[in-house]
């Protein structure tokens, strides 16, 4: 007999794998946004190189928020959430697993993809590696904020969620981009450290808030 948490992991993974749209959606969104920037700003190599870190970060932020809103939404609608609550198991681990699986399927591919697109936007290779590192630390933060937005608006699933979350994500965005821009000097470590700290402290606070937000719908 499998444990509750292993079932959660397997169930969610199978759902993602069986529906190509759930992990292709963010990829398509990311690629099209990346393409829009050179079309809007022109293909000047110097200009794009200067903007590229920001372009990639913003595109990932938006692509992520779209997908993470629905982490808890479907479980709420089909009644799985009822069963989870009735099971009496710790919801903290359950929510963490759900967020992780979502991150694994929708953010991780984007991190690898961002390495490829950084060449198209003329970002130097060293900076691109830092970009991947900052995304690795930053995207889980976005996932958790997105999950919180989704948990707050379970019944409606509307734009309100993302408008709450984007201002909250700013530190991650700013620290990530600052780290990339200072990839040649020592300040880099300072910003990476801060980003990691932000991630570290976000985990307990945001997941607990997600649970509080889910509970709102069951009072």
């Amino acid at each position: 007999m499998k444990s509750f948490y292993f079932k959660t992991f397997q169930r969610d993974s199978k759902v993602y794998l069986s529906r190509s749209s759930s992990f292709l959606g963010p990829i398509v969104f990311f690629l099209i946004t990346i393409t829009l920037y050179p079309l809007a700003f022109g293909s000047d190599e110097e200009k794009l190189a200067e903007l590229s870190a920001g372009i990639i970060w913003i595109s990932i932020l938006l692509a992520n928020l779209l997908s993470h809103q629905f982490i808890f939404n479907e479980d709420f609608k089909d009644g799985s959430l009822d069963l989870v609550l009735a099971s009496g198991k710790s919801l903290f681990l359950w929510a963490s697993i759900k967020i992780f699986v979502n991150w694994y399927f929708s953010s991780l591919p984007l991190i690898f993809l961002s390495l490829l697109t950084s060449f198209m936007l003329y970002l130097p290779f060293d900076a691109a590696l830092i970009l991947a590192l900052t995304l690795f630390l930053g995207t889980p933060i976005l996932s958790m904020f997105g999950a919180l937005a989704g948990a707050l608006t379970l019944e409606r699933g509307n734009i309100v969620g993302s408008s709450i979350v984007i201002p909250m994500c700013l530190p991650a965005l700013i620290l990530g981009i600052l780290a990339i821009q200072s990839y040649k000097n020592e300040e880099l470590f300072f910003y990476i450290f801060l980003l990691a700290a932000f991630l570290f402290f976000s985990i307990p606070i945001l997941i607990a808030s997600c649970l509080g937000a889910i509970r709102l719908h069951f009072e």
């Binding site: 079932k7 959660t8 397997q10 169930r11 759902v15 529906r19 609608k77 089909d78 009644g79």
Partner: peptide, 21 residues
């Protein structure tokens, strides 16, 4: 419950085996 807690995109077997209950 009223909502059965089943996942549309999973097979019948997976729905039963991976059910929390």
């Amino acid at each position: 419950g009223h909502n059965l807690g089943l996942k549309d995109s999973l097979s019948v077997k997976d729905n039963l085996l991976l059910d929390y209950r």
